[in-house]
Computed example of a mutant assay.
Amino acid sequence: MRYITFVKMAEGLEDPPLALQEAMAKEMDQAIAEGTLLEAGGLSGMRDSTEIRLRSGTITQVDGPYAEGKEVAGGYAITEVRSHEEAVEGARRVLELHQQYWPGWEGSVEIRQMFTAPGQ
């Protein structure tokens, strides 16, 4: 089963502490070696984003930052795991590393199963 996870946090935080970056790199290297982590990376802030919307039959473009955005996705990972529970456990580990190496950081991890088109 393939999942995508988004690490969400307040917009505008400083860069993560070096200790967290090193711990996350170690965790990701292990997951890559195990074959469960397929891809991961950080995302730019909302100031660099663009949203294309379809409302009432009209397509519009809105450039960030967005006043209504309080929490943004700061990173993502794509995993291949055996169960939803395994995906949740991996996300919990990400939060535990943030808790340990970035005191005071608050955020969440959204976990969503990915589906592919038939024949892929």
Rank of each mutant, 00 (worst) to 15 (best):
I59T: 13
L38H: 14
I32P: 05
T36F: 12
T5L: 15
P103E: 00
M28R: 11
L20Q: 02
S44D: 12
E34I: 10
I78R: 03
Y76F: 04
I59D: 08
W102H: 01
F6V: 12
G42R: 08
H98M: 01
P65F: 05
S83M: 02
S83H: 06
L18S: 03
Q61I: 13
T58V: 06
V62N: 09
E106H: 10
D63G: 04
E14R: 11
R47A: 08
M46E: 09
D29G: 14
G12P: 14
G45P: 09
S56I: 01
E51S: 12
K70C: 04
G90L: 15
I52P: 06
Q100T: 04
S108C: 10
A77Q: 08
G104F: 01
A31T: 05
M24S: 01
G41W: 04
G104K: 01
E11Q: 14
R112C: 09
L97Q: 01
L43C: 05
R92A: 13
A67C: 04
A10H: 13
G69Q: 14
M1G: 15
T50F: 02
Y66Q: 10
E27H: 12
D48I: 03
P103N: 02
M28D: 04
W102T: 00
V88I: 14
A33M: 08
L95G: 03
L95F: 08
E96R: 09
G75V: 04
I59L: 11
V62R: 07
R53T: 03
E106Q: 11
A40V: 11
R2V: 13
G119K: 08
A25I: 00
G104N: 01
I52Q: 07
R92P: 14
G35S: 07
P118Q: 15
E110V: 12
M1C: 13
P118M: 09
T58P: 06
V109Y: 08
E106M: 06
H98S: 03
E96I: 03
G74K: 05
I32C: 01
E27M: 07
T58E: 13
L54G: 07
G104I: 01
E80C: 08
I4Y: 11
A19E: 07
S83V: 03
D15A: 13
T5F: 14
T116S: 12
M24T: 04
I52E: 03
E51D: 08
V94K: 05
A73K: 06
D15T: 14
P16Y: 06
L20D: 00
F115D: 07
D29M: 07
L54Q: 08
T60Y: 09
G69K: 13
D15I: 10
T36H: 10
V81R: 07
Q100E: 02
A77G: 10
R92S: 13
Q100Y: 02
L43I: 07
P65H: 05
A67N: 05
A25P: 02
P103V: 00
R47M: 07
G64S: 03
I78M: 02
P118A: 09
H84I: 02
R2E: 15
R47I: 05
A40L: 08
G42N: 09
